[in-house]
């Protein structure tokens, strides 16, 4: 990449960090995001128990309130669930799944959306019309409805959920990239570059893509938050992840029945974690939106 492009990225990164730094709220949220990301990656090294190693579980320990100790002197700070699983350990593993699914589907949707958006903006004409028609159709339907339709027909499963999440997200990226790229495309220097015979990929990646970065970063953040929420919702409804891939949404669902009988911790704590995760990402994303101020629109 050319020196100017790098310089612009440096500027962008600088702006992002400065922008977050000026808002105490955003700093806290960013720190929380980093901690949670770290916890998700380092998960198995942090937990006192492998919650899915059945040999490590003792049914006698089930539904213990927070702070209880087991025979081996292990303290369940956040209590245990119906199978005698340490809630803290289960939550760290759940965080891995939730964050993994959210980030992965967000990144794939970003790549797909960016490629299609750039293609539409650069080539225009019929290709543009075709892509944007599909985008409009996708965005015309609420996320949850499309995901429901898909999973109702396909059945549950990790890759099916990821597929559904990508399907409902790519169009948002595509539209943002297209409009950002169109602004830049109409500038004289791009026309000059075309006249000079600079290759299409070079123009796309060297000139149009950097200009799309600010909206992409903001939408990317917000979409990951949405994806995590959506996955949790689908899993809660029983049409998302299977029981073998327990995400935070599933943990909450497992505790739902026990809520009425007073064992609140089984669904409250995973819920609080999910809330903190999504809330922090949204706060950072919102702050970035203010800093970069692309007119993203609310729709």
């Amino acid at each position: 990449m050319s020196a100017t492009a790098l310089f612009r990225e440096d500027m962008l990164l600088g702006r992002l960090i400065m922008g977050i730094g000026r808002s105490p709220k955003a700093v806290i949220a960013a720190v929380v995001c980093v901690i949670l990301l770290f916890a998700a990656i380092a998960g198995p090294f942090l937990t006192p128990q492998d919650p899915y190693d059945l040999a490590a579980l003792d049914i006698l320990d089930s539904k213990l309130p927070p702070g209880s100790q087991n025979m081996d002197g292990l303290t369940y700070w956040l209590g245990t669930d119906g199978q005698g699983r340490d809630m803290f350990s289960a939550m760290v593993y759940g965080l891995r799944t939730s964050l993994g699914v959210g980030v992965f589907s967000g990144i794939v949707a970003l790549v797909v959306g960016t490629v299609l958006g750039l293609t539409a903006a650069y080539f225009g004409g019929r290709i543009d019309t075709l892509i944007m028609r599909v985008v409009d159709l996708m965005l015309g339907f609420p996320t949850i409805l499309v995901a429901l339709m898909l999973l109702a027909l396909l059945g549950q499963g990790l890759w099916k959920v990821i597929f559904a999440l990508i399907l409902v997200q790519w169009a948002t990226f595509a539209r943002a990239v297209r409009s950002a790229a169109l602004v830049e495309k109409n500038k004289d220097y791009v026309e000059a570059a075309v006249t000079l015979g600079i290759s299409t990929p070079r123009i796309l990646i060297g000139h149009l893509l950097p200009n799309c970065l600010p909206p992409l970063i903001v939408i990317g953040m917000l979409q990951v938050a949405n994806a995590i929420s959506a996955e949790a919702t689908l899993s809660f409804l029983g049409i998302g992840l299977p029981i073998t891939e327990p995400s935070l949404g599933l943990l909450i669902a497992n505790g739902y029945q026990l809520l009425m009988s007073g064992e609140y911790w089984i669904s409250v704590y995973p819920g609080v974690l999910l809330l903190i995760l999504v809330f922090s990402i949204n706060i950072v994303g919102d702050r970035l939106r203010e800093v970069l101020n692309p007119r993203l629109g609310e729709r």
Binding site: A225, S229, A232, T233, F236, L237, G249, I252, Y256, L259, M260, Y264, S267, V268, G271, L274, L275, V278, F279, N282, I283, D286
Partner: peptide
């Protein structure tokens, strides 16, 4: 922001609780 970060199903459970 808090409002749309609250997963709807969990928020409903908390209302019940």
């Amino acid at each position: 922001i808090f409002g749309f970060s609250l997963p709807s199903f969990w928020q409903g459970m908390m209302l019940i609780m």
